[in-house]
């Protein structure tokens, strides 16, 4: 319950940390992770994976977030694995090579076995050989990126991680392998994706926190270290508190993604997203403020980590839409309870 990783989770997180630290020597981080089979943590065992769940991912993704690693760990490793494991026998056949999960929304239309429209800002699609497309009807489709009618517009996100917009022009599903429906899969993957990016952001925000604390202890102005000023102490304490609460929520979200309690999962994930769009935004802004001028330079590592938190905030549903979802869940749950107040009245 203290959410310290268990020994196995710690060992895996340490392996990641080691690879991140030795970036590029002698192989790329991505190749190295693949070689060590660390990219298949969440994959089904019959595809050479370990079948890890969301709770197992938190330590690893936090490590990635803290290190600032640009590799597409979420989009092209964790999420496709989670999707295939969840779908089980209903999963499509996936070929060898890099696979990236894309979550279709209302911008993509399926008619007569053909897809038209787009899926925008798909992290990890830049490296993919195959798209694992999750349709709103809860089916997975494994589609080669060179399928006829499909085009990718590849770019970097603001934190340096790769992504792409996918454009579909009458793309025939029959070009790929189509799986069967897994009830609730699309909604689950949307929440799992939000959780995964939040776990990554957790690592980044904790790194920002440590960096800021250290800066306050060493930087001197007016002949004193910054940490002797009470206003700055209190701002740092607020960052500490909010990040601890965020940590609690991320673990709750991961735990609920691994459970069957759909309402609780949605509450937890939307709470995490509200934190990213509220208290966490405030935290990184405050961390930059506490650094003064150095905090706004591109060279100082804080900025890159802050952008990583912002990416988690912007992707997988807006803060506003998650606020609305949370409010709706609360209303539904409260309405389902027996009315025992007997105080219904207009307040105008």
């Amino acid at each position: 319950m203290d959410f310290a990783p268990n020994s196995e989770q710690q060992m895996i997180a340490d392996s990641f940390a080691k690879v991140f630290a030795a970036a590029g020597e002698p192989r790329s981080v991505w190749e190295e992770l693949g070689e060590l089979e660390l990219l298949r943590l969440t994959w089904p065992e019959d595809l050479g994976g370990f079948g890890a769940g969301c709770s197992d991912l938190v330590a690893v993704l936090s490590e990635a977030g803290a290190s600032g690693a640009p590799e597409p760990l979420i989009g092209a490793a964790a999420l496709p694995g989670l999707a295939l494991t969840r779908a089980g026998a209903a999963a499509p056949t996936v070929p060898d090579g890099e696979i990236c999960l894309a979550l279709a929304d209302t911008n993509l239309h399926l008619a007569d076995g053909r897809l038209t429209g787009s899926v925008n800002v798909v992290p990890g699609a830049d490296v993919a050989d195959t798209l694992l497309l999750c349709l709103p009807d809860d089916r997975l489709v494994a589609l080669p990126v060179d399928a006829k009618g499909l085009s990718l517009e590849v770019y970097e996100l603001l934190d340096g991680r790769g992504a792409a917009d996918l454009h579909f022009q009458q793309v025939e599903l029959s070009q790929g392998s189509v799986g069967g429906p897994t009830p609730g899969l699309h909604a689950w993957l949307c929440d799992a994706a939000a959780m995964a990016f939040a776990a990554d952001a957790l690592g980044a925000i904790c790194a920002i926190r440590d960096m800021t604390q250290e800066y306050l202890k060493t930087r001197k102005q007016f002949g004193k270290t910054l940490c002797s000023f009470q206003a700055l102490q209190h701002a740092m304490v607020d960052i500490y508190h909010d990040t601890e609460h965020f940590l609690s929520l991320v673990h709750l979200a991961a735990k609920t993604c691994d459970s069957d309690d759909v309402a609780m999962r949605m509450r937890a994930v939307s709470s995490v997203k509200r934190y990213l769009g509220g208290r966490m935004r405030d935290c990184i802004a405050s961390a930059i403020q506490l650094h003064g001028g150095i905090g706004v330079t591109e060279e100082y590592p804080l900025g890159a980590l802050a952008k990583r938190v912002i990416v988690a905030d912007l992707l997988n549903g807006s803060s506003a839409s998650h606020g609305a979802r949370l409010a709706r869940l609360i209303a539904e749950e409260t309405r389902a309870e027996l009315n025992i107040t007997g105080q219904e009245k207009d307040v105008a």
Partner: peptide, 20 residues
Amino acid sequence: GAKLADLEADFLAQEVTNLR
């Protein structure tokens, strides 16, 4: 509803932090 939602998020975080 939005105010209630943010209070809920803070309360959930508090509840888990308390368990920690």
